[in-house]
């Protein structure tokens, strides 16, 4: 069976060292250039919030910035889509809990 070809994204070099950020107080390892969503998924954190009405789990879904299901709160930035947010060393990430 033919295997898919790997394509490396410029600036993202596997095994080029790691950084870490905190998510709900836990240290999450990430690679330079990797998104917060990707690092959280690899760390085994699929659920980023629960719906208010039926308490259903929600997390990374469309992967392209449309659905907002992967929203997280980044200290100093606010609520962002984790699928489009590069992981930065030392960033503090929490569950999204915006307030009116």
């Amino acid at each position: 069976m033919p295997q898919p070809k790997m394509r490396f994204i410029p600036g993202v070099v596997p095994n080029a060292g790691t950084l870490s950020f905190s998510f709900e107080g836990n240290e999450i390892p990430a690679r330079p250039g990797e998104t917060v969503a990707s690092a959280l998924m690899r760390a085994g954190v699929p659920v980023l919030r629960r719906t208010r009405i039926e308490n259903q789990p929600r997390g990374y879904f469309c992967g392209m910035g449309i659905c907002w299901e992967c929203a997280v709160f980044v200290e100093g930035t606010g609520v962002v889509r984790s699928c489009g947010e590069p992981a930065r060393p030392g960033m503090v990430v929490r569950l999204a809990e915006a307030e009116v």
């Binding site: 915006a98 307030e99 009116v100």
Partner: peptide, 26 residues
């Protein structure tokens, strides 16, 4: 995006140029 439930009713405007409500999911 969903936010903490705060606005419990609808808001409209004297000139009809705004309606706002916070629905069940926040």
């Amino acid at each position: 995006e969903p936010a903490r439930p705060t606005i419990e009713c609808i808001v409209t405007h004297a000139r009809g140029i705004l309606t706002l409500k916070q629905v069940a999911n926040g």
